[in-house]
Amino acid sequence: MISNDNIQVEELFTTYHQQIYQFIYRYTQDEALSYDIVQDTFIKFQKYANDYDSTKSHIRTFLFRIAYQLTMTKLKRRNKFKKLLPFLYEQNQEEPVSLEEKITIRTTLQQLPPEQRAVIIFTYYHDLSQKEIAAILQIPIGTVKSRLHSSLKKLKDLLEVDDDE
C-alpha cells in the first residue's frame, strides 16, 4: 500500500530533482556525485519531513538546504580520503589546460571559492532571492550580498567581460 507521504515525496521528486541535480552538477562538476546526492536528498527529506515548516520557508529552499549540506559533507569526506590516499585519485591539476578551456564558464566557476560559487549558481541559474540563499547556506543576507558582489567581480575578471552595469 502506498501512503500519502510516499505520494508527496514522489511529487516533490518529480518537481525538484532536476533543479537539485543541476545545482549540484554545476557546483561539483561530478556526475556520479550529483546523481547520488539527488537521491540522498529525498531519502533525508523523508526522514526529516516533520522538521519542515511551510510558514518559514518554501519547500524548494528546504530541499536545496538538505542537498547543499549533503554536498558539503560528501566533499569534505572525499577531501579527507584524498589526503589519506592520494594515489587513488586522479591528479587532475597536473593535466595541461588549454587557453580556450581556461576561459570557459565551467572552468571559471570551478576557480571561484566554493562559497562564492554556490551564491552565483543559486542567483543566476535558479533565480533564488538573497533571503532564500541565506536560508539555504545558513548565512546572513549581508554575507550573501557581499559574496555575490565578489563572485561577479571575479567572474568578470576571469572571463574578461566588460563591466556594463
Binding site: V9, E10, F13, H17, Q18, Y21, Q22, Y25, R26, E31, Y35, V38, Q39, F42, T104, I105, R106, T108, L109, Y124, Y125, L155, L159, V161
Partner: peptide, 14 residues
C-alpha cells in the same frame, strides 16, 4: 557566458 553551462539531467530513480 553563464548560459553556455547547460546541464543534461539523467534519468534518476527516487
Amino acid at each position: 557566458k553563464l548560459d553556455e553551462f547547460e546541464v543534461d539531467v539523467p534519468d534518476i530513480p527516487l
